[in-house]
Write a protein that binds this DNA or RNA. Structure first.
Lengths: 224, 224, 224, 224
DNA sequence: TATGAATGAGACTTCATTCAT
DNA sequence: AATGAATGAAGTCTCATTCAT
């Protein structure tokens, strides 16, 4: 037996490399098939390794899925946070950058986003997913509270609204990637601008209204 | 112990009653566990009937899921459409009524909404789910196109944004029901007004801008 | 409510008529699907009655199948026995008539034959079927012992051979009904003659040989 | 207790060994219970392995059954064909050797024969079973056509008769193994000779008759 | 370390059988 | 007498997980 890699299937790799291999495959498969629909066989095949190795590096199916969730959520949050920058800058500029980063991250992490937002909100990971989502919403709430000069408790529902709106827009775009973009700017930037066009004026108007009577500041409150 | 339902087993019921029992249970279970995660055993247990009865009244798991999808989508769409009223009325009034009906439906049909919108759009029902989702969003797009005087294709992404924002707000509220509502008006109405406060000004502003330069109508387009 | 049969599904019939209805349907279904493959639903549907009625008139599935076996075996044996006639007549003439009756019975009782010989020889009714077959073989053994003037114990294996040969021929014919028959005589008669052409000379020759050395009377015993 | 097979569970075997184990068990169970009556549980238990292993090595129930059919048919046909030898030899000698091989195979492959010949020829395997049966009977028909100097189409019903007769004789013998055999020769050889004693003279006589008037060559054609 | 081989548990589905009308 | 409605039990098949090499 020579010292060369005599059998290609038995290639020894550094543990962290193998772990990333497995996680990448898992994210891909989970995003395509959902948690229950995905099989460990499929993950192993996608990673190009044997099934026991998936267990060695990824743990049980539940653990593997949780690891996917966390890694993808961390990536997303990191991207948004670092784009938002320090609290000193103009708040709406920070929001704009954060939104652009958010939509941009979807382009490069589409599978991760799907795992986080389309597959896992039901089933045994609802709680885990909710906690991860909360981290994102709270980042948005911080930005808005800072920008509007209102208490965080007041900003919270608007943050949920904003994040929900972003999700809705993102889903539409991911379902039909050619529909957005004018061919000049980055699609992610276009999406961020579309979103701001819808919610920007409303958010600005909120700065002038008292927290309790926000609804009455709407221009469509004529009825009843 | 009353004289009613002396023995739970072997109760003869009219077929349509049983069918609704089964469908209700199925919607509940599917919404909690997802399609793959839900078991026919769980549906039967939730409905309080035996498993074969689920097959008699709901057909196979696929058929049962499809039936759930269609019933819930029809219910939701009916509620929103009848609330929106005829096209002759003032557009923003129609939108307001539609939104109120939408939030109202979300609170009474939470599970149905979850089945429709929080399920994997991958798998064997992708087409079906997409078609049903489209019907709902397109109703919103019709309203907005009518109200804004813009082509439907332009209104579509804003409709997705609007629906997503409504979801985000509803999720927040359903997770903490005491947080919204002033104790006077219906919570659903309060939510509708909050949403309009955020998106109303932006939507109005869109009426003046051309589709391509929507983003530039935002007051935060200073950067870059 | 008049005294007329207001509902056609609730027609009261004499028990023996119903029983025959059910048995006929059962024979048909069992012959087509086999014991395990046949469902009580199918039997009920074929009989044009409801399933509980099948249980009332036919008993459990096992009992129903046993009843089918016995009725069909009795019919077959009756036909053969009455054709064979009394022991006084010329033995080979009796055999010939019996064989013709046998093949003729297959034409009119094809389903019954299938149930008896093609479906039931495996499974939980093997013993029952064997007993019924034995009755037929023993009828043949009686005929042969009588005709050849040999003890019944000696005739028995030849009776098995004869019945097996008849089965083989019958199976072939039933699988391809157009293959037999010259267009003039009854197909059943042609089959009987074919069988006699094969086994007749051998049986006659056995009359002259001793029981122990039958094999040596063969003209092909040259080897070894 | 020897040192062998210390623990029955979790034994690693070569795939081809396991596959034969599974097939053997399947043939046994199918022959005893029929296709519908046999359960995969029973096959697994008979093979002494777990149920998933049956699926790994045998595929679905349909595939497993088909594999049984083919293996047993091949075995049987191989045995008979190699015993029959080349066409150049004396026809009746070939027939004799083939019959001996046939009876020998019946005694060592009883279950396989049962699977092939005592199963419902209805159901999803009708075509497959018929084709395999035909191969065996046609081998006999070839031998007979060769030996008698008649066209194969003429020989075919006689081949069915011959095979049926062999089955009848074999059934009788296998039901009462002490009844046949003189204690000197192989029982299978004795059975072959008994069969030839019955059908040999008839077959020889057929050589002189034309196909249409075979029946009239019988010595019992006096009636009608 | 890495894997081929094996299995316990559970899912979907159907069927024989029986109650309540 | 007759039936629509209902269910316990069993069957096929898959999957997460682990042993033995």
């Amino acid at each position: 037996m020579t010292s060369e890699t005599s059998r290609p299937g038995r290639q020894r790799l550094a543990p962290e490399v193998r772990r990333r291999q497995v996680l990448d495959a898992a994210v891909a498969v989970f995003s395509e098939e959902g948690f229950h629909g995905a099989s460990m066989d499929a993950v192993a095949a996608r990673a190009g390794v044997s099934k026991p190795l998936v267990y060695v590096h990824g743990g049980s199916k539940d653990e593997l899925f949780a690891a996917c969730l966390h890694r993808e959520a961390d990536r997303l949050l990191d991207a948004v946070q670092s784009a938002a920058g320090a609290p000193g800058e103009a708040p709406l500029v920070r929001l704009r950058r954060a939104l652009r980063a958010f939509f941009h991250a979807l382009t490069t992490q589409r599978a991760g986003w799907t795992v986080l937002y389309r597959q896992a909100s039901t089933g045994p990971f609802a709680g885990e997913v909710d906690a991860l989502r909360r981290r994102i919403v709270e980042e948005a709430a911080d930005l808005m509270a800072d920008g509007l000069g209102v208490p965080r408790a007041v900003a919270l529902p608007y943050a949920h609204t904003l994040v929900g709106a972003a999700e809705g827009l993102a889903d539409w775009w991911l379902g039909d990637p050619d529909a957005a973009g004018d061919g000049v700017a980055e699609p992610a930037d276009v999406l961020a601008d579309m979103l701001l066009a819808v919610v920007g004026p409303g958010i600005e108007a909120l700065t002038n209204g008292s927290s309790g009577s926000i609804a009455s500041s709407s221009s469509v409150s004529g009825e009843r």
